[in-house]
Design a protein around this nucleic acid. Structure first.
Lengths: 231, 231
DNA sequence: CCTGACAAAAGTGTCGACACTTTGAGGATT
DNA sequence: AATCCTCAAAGTGTCGACACTTTTGTCAGG
């Protein structure tokens, strides 16, 4: 119902987390995504617990959830480490996104309400202006792009799909964007692709929507591949 | 590497779980999937802890993981309940499967080794014999079908994809099969479809493999839809 | 100098107890 | 009889302590 309340940027699990473990989880997730806790580093439970003034028990529950989101890896009796990012894993994520968001676009073309579509059109138009003004200030790739995709996923109305993309994959992807410094000069092209896709949704053409979304993500992936191979 | 060690039927997280929480998690997951703990029922931590002779702390960690797999739902201060199954959710799961396994088939056509393909052929042939002998004894839909799909997912070599399908979705799906009593007389048709799909993989035709997998899952979904609408 | 045994230190796994929240039964008021 | 209040009972959230495992650092023997 209140899709608008779920801000894409501030995607904390609850708007205001009640339990200590919840807040701790949000804090740690942010710290990991933004690289404050370096990727690949070991996590010492006693130390982290002291730093955040919580008991080890609560910390452990938080770490458990981070593990479920694949932000940390745990081995019995050996402790937890923040995941190490790799080129290969990033490609894998794009492949999964292509499949899932393609389906999301298909369903969105069927299930989005007229008002949702209008809002999405307004959002896209706003992006267009920002690109003109700021001349592709990397804002687009980083936040605007996620915004747009987020809405389409929500528009699919498929809770399973929404959960997988917005909980499991979204944060991993953001982590890569943060730490691999992925800004692109592809703003204009991405914007155009979003436009084509939106047209397909307006026309209620599921087949075309899926096709265009998959092409869009593939082309975004190729962009990342090129960028990373330059290093 | 040791794909063969990961038996589809006995999909415990580790071959032998070391920690108490791990074993408890496996036990509870099995109990929930097979309906021993009824779907929709409330979970009392003290009671369950006593039943399994564990402390509440360990139990809570196990429940946390079950929540991550969407087998239980938790609300702060109100406790946890086993998920309630619904027709709508089942459809959603099939849509996600169509997307993910379609991609898996595509990747499997590219990445499966020759020996893996041969093993898969042997497996399928065995299924064929079983169908002839037992005259579609519901065995196929329930285990053989999962077996086949499991191998293809593994064959994609995409760890993200494997994780999502074999950890997050697989168990939910098994739960539906158990509790909705989903046996079908579609064994022969499913077997045929598996055959076509395998041919595409043998020919290393990713496009065709994805197409056939998606058709296969769609038709399986329609079968379920028909079956449930009879009630 | 290197290697391997052994003990101390640090870290993880598990537990029982306490504090706070919700539930529910019983009684007082209208 | 119905509604609201109160307070005990049950349940969840959080904590600190103990047991067991892994790591570290030291020393003896080669």
């Amino acid at each position: 119902m209140d899709i608008m309340r779920n801000l894409p940027a501030t995607n904390s699990t609850k708007s205001v987390s009640i339990t200590l473990t919840d807040r701790l989880f949000d804090t740690l997730q942010k710290a990991i995504v933004e690289g404050e806790i370096p990727s690949g580093s070991k996590i010492s439970e006693p130390e982290l617990a002291r730093q955040h003034s919580v008991s080890r028990g609560s910390l452990r529950e938080a770490i458990g959830r981070l593990e479920a989101r694949k932000l940390v890896e745990r081995k019995p009796n050996l402790g937890a480490r923040v995941v190490t990012l790799s080129y290969e894993q990033l490609i894998e994520i794009y492949q999964v996104r292509e499949a899932l968001e393609g389906m999301a676009a298909r369903l969105a073309a069927q299930n989005m309400s007229e008002t949702e579509i209008e809002e999405l059109q307004a959002l896209l138009e706003k992006h267009g202006h920002e690109i003109e003004e700021q001349h592709g200030q990397a804002y687009f790739q980083k936040q605007g792009d996620l915004d747009f995709h987020y809405r389409i996923v929500q528009g699919s109305k498929n809770q399973q799909l929404i959960g997988l993309l917005c909980n499991d994959l979204y944060h991993l992807l953001r982590m890569y964007r943060f730490q691999f410094g992925m800004r692109s000069k592809r703003s204009q092209q991405a914007y155009d692709e979003h436009h084509y896709l939106l047209n397909a949704i307006v026309s209620r053409d599921p087949e075309m929507a899926e096709l265009l979304m998959r092409q869009h993500i593939r082309s975004s992936r190729r962009n990342v591949e090129r960028m990373l191979l330059e290093n």
